[in-house]
């Protein structure tokens, strides 16, 4: 197997102190091989966003270690979080400018990225002039502009309609194939995980921990409504149910 891009070793994250302490993640160990498309699946509040924030370096773990490749990870938030004071092109160029890339080189790279997410000619618009799906694509282009080897995505398509989501699934899969990125993709949606992932990791709640793992060997590109995808979704859903039942027994 290829060397791992992201390694989490017995990671624990506790918020608050004393009686207020709340363990969001407990003893999470995880290796993500370079180039893998990994989906994290779990109930609301089980610690998926926390896990991504730890990998992104936005928060430190309470104990354990997190390692990512040099240059860190890029992150796409659930909300596109575009800057309304910048044009679409300047939003995408933001990480390039922070790296000190010259204006011409930046412009050229932004054009490339706009083309990659099918938004040629939209660079001079302001974010509020775009539809929700277009904004998500700008956020994707901006995350790609960071040129990190790892891309973290926190339920990026949760707020979109099914049709737009299908299109963006195709797009993210194509980008992943073209760039050889390692992607950690968080979702509530079992079908979405089965559609996209090389591997699905199921998280249990209270405290957040790894409860199960599915390797997905189905050929790509997959259709979200293909029978194999549906069947895999059923298997994963059953496992999620038993994880949830386990939680109920524990509490």
């Amino acid at each position: 197997m290829i060397s791992p891009a992201v390694v989490l070793d017995h990671v624990q994250k506790t918020y608050g102190q004393g009686a207020q302490a709340h363990t969001a993640l407990q003893s999470v160990s995880l290796e993500v091989p370079a180039g893998e498309f990994l989906c994290l699946l779990g109930a609301s509040g089980c610690g998926k966003s926390t896990l991504l924030h730890l990998i992104a370096g936005l928060e430190p773990p309470t104990s354990g270690s997190v390692s990512v490749p040099a240059g860190g990870a890029a992150m796409m938030f659930q909300d596109p979080a575009l800057f309304p004071w910048l044009s679409v092109a300047d939003n995408i160029g933001f990480p390039l400018a922070r790296k000190g890339l010259g204006a011409t080189a930046q412009k050229a790279r932004v054009q490339e990225l706009l083309a990659m997410v099918n938004l040629d000619g939209w660079g001079h618009r302001q974010p509020h002039e775009l539809s929700g799906g277009m904004r998500q694509r700008v956020a994707l282009a901006r995350a790609l502009a960071q040129d990190a080897r790892v891309l973290l995505m926190d339920e990026p398509f949760a707020a979109l309609d099914a049709m737009m989501r299908d299109r963006l699934h195709d797009e993210i899969e194509r980008v992943w194939r073209e760039t050889g990125l390692t992607i950690v993709f968080v979702t509530h949606n079992v079908r979405e995980a089965a559609r996209l992932a090389d591997r699905v990791i199921v998280l249990a709640s209270h405290p957040g921990r790894i409860a199960g793992e599915f390797s997905v060997k189905l050929p790509r590109p997959r259709r979200i409504d293909a029978p194999e995808v549906a069947q895999l979704s059923r298997t994963i859903t059953d496992s999620l149910r038993s994880v949830l039942r386990g939680n109920d027994d524990a509490s």
């Binding site: 890029a74 938030f77 909300d79 979080a81 800057f83 933001f94 922070r98 901006r142």
Partner: peptide
């Protein structure tokens, strides 16, 4: 969220102030 995004996208220290805090507060 904008601050987080700014940090994530490589703005730190003064560059975070100049490119995120100030325009966001405008």
């Amino acid at each position: 969220l904008w601050i987080r995004a700014g940090k994530m996208l490589g703005a730190r220290g003064w560059s975070l102030v100049a490119h995120v805090y100030l325009p966001a507060a405008m």
